[in-house]
Design a binder for these strands. Sequence first.
DNA 1: GTTAAATTTAACCAAACGGTTAAATATGTT
DNA 2: AACATATTTAACCGTTTGGTTAAATTTAAC
Lengths: 201, 201
Amino acid sequence: MKYNKDTSEKILTAAITVFEEKGFSGTRMQEIADKANINKALLHYYYKSKDKLFEIILIRAIQLLMPKLAMVFNSEDNFFKKIENFVSVYIDILSEHPHIPAFVSHEINTNPKRLLKFIENSGVNITPFIQTIKQEIEKKTIIDIEPEQLIVNTISLCIFPFIAKPIITNIILKDNKKKYTEFIESRKKEVSRFIINAIKN
Amino acid sequence: MKYNKDTSEKILTAAITVFEEKGFSGTRMQEIADKANINKALLHYYYKSKDKLFEIILIRAIQLLMPKLAMVFNSEDNFFKKIENFVSVYIDILSEHPHIPAFVSHEINTNPKRLLKFIENSGVNITPFIQTIKQEIEKKTIIDIEPEQLIVNTISLCIFPFIAKPIITNIILKDNKKKYTEFIESRKKEVSRFIINAIKN
DNA sequence: GTTAAATTTAACCAAACGGTTAAATATGTT
DNA sequence: AACATATTTAACCGTTTGGTTAAATTTAAC
């Protein structure tokens, strides 16, 4: 029993596309097979079940995200530089993999326990983030803010604009010449500026 | 052909709960009927189809949100007060109707055109917001920021924490004694403070 | 008690779906 | 050409699902 790596990846790519649009339950395996230009039997040869396929994509998404984010925050940079890098990395990863927010938000509603398990299995540990923020508060670099609120704010500012792409494109940028991709690209600087302005002492 | 208002609302409430958890395609009509303690035939007597039911819920969600938000921004308050009220109203509505983010994010992925149509039909018009922000920039009340970025930031900070509830509860607040509801309640002041600090001149 | 109307029952239907199977075919390697 | 392997075909399966229907039952109002 052998596998062709190209075929394996082609199926994954197709699955990402269809799952992103239709959600898990709304996606048929035949659709994925069509998208990947294979037959359904081969799909089942390569991936045991629909559930398994979805899970593999989800785990990959999480493992794309978490280590890089931790790495940024463990660097020797000063705090504001860390925020800039965190935001930049986060937006870059999401720009390159815009399916991640859709998968995560679907999973949050339908299968929160599974999602939390995968996130925990990814090794994410926010305690160092919290400690760092507390230190900066003590040093008076930043204002007194609950660390968890700052973390939630930062993540919200990075991720939600990807979720809201159609709304941003068609409503918020309706009379603006700027395209969505430019808008997101400029957020790398804009979001970190916003956050730093909000918290600096 | 008559309807009982109580039964009608009972079905809607049940549908909101099941759709929120399972998503549109993952929800069976029999599940909604079970949740509402009725039989499936009555469900179809009251609501023509699964699609129709979902649509009614979605339209209601949007019509809950949009007029109140516009009203806040049309008030005679000063700009920072408007932001405070906007954030407060937004978070209150979402706290009272926590299903809205799940419905909206599902619809963004699976049916963006329909969602945009409903949002537009709600009468939302962000041009006054944009004009107001531009005026405040000219008056030097706030820093030079692209109005659309400020709008996206504000909405992100208000809505994403509702989407991310399980992550906030189980990961971010894991070692924090504060409960999710307290955390969200304190965001009313925290988010507006954050925004105002970020943009004030 | 009578009537009207809301609700339930019980059965049905066609279509769809994830998954399976064995044989046939195509592809790649030697 | 022979062989191994990846892929396809074509059919199948049991289950589930949204939606339907007519008759029976229950409930509410008078």
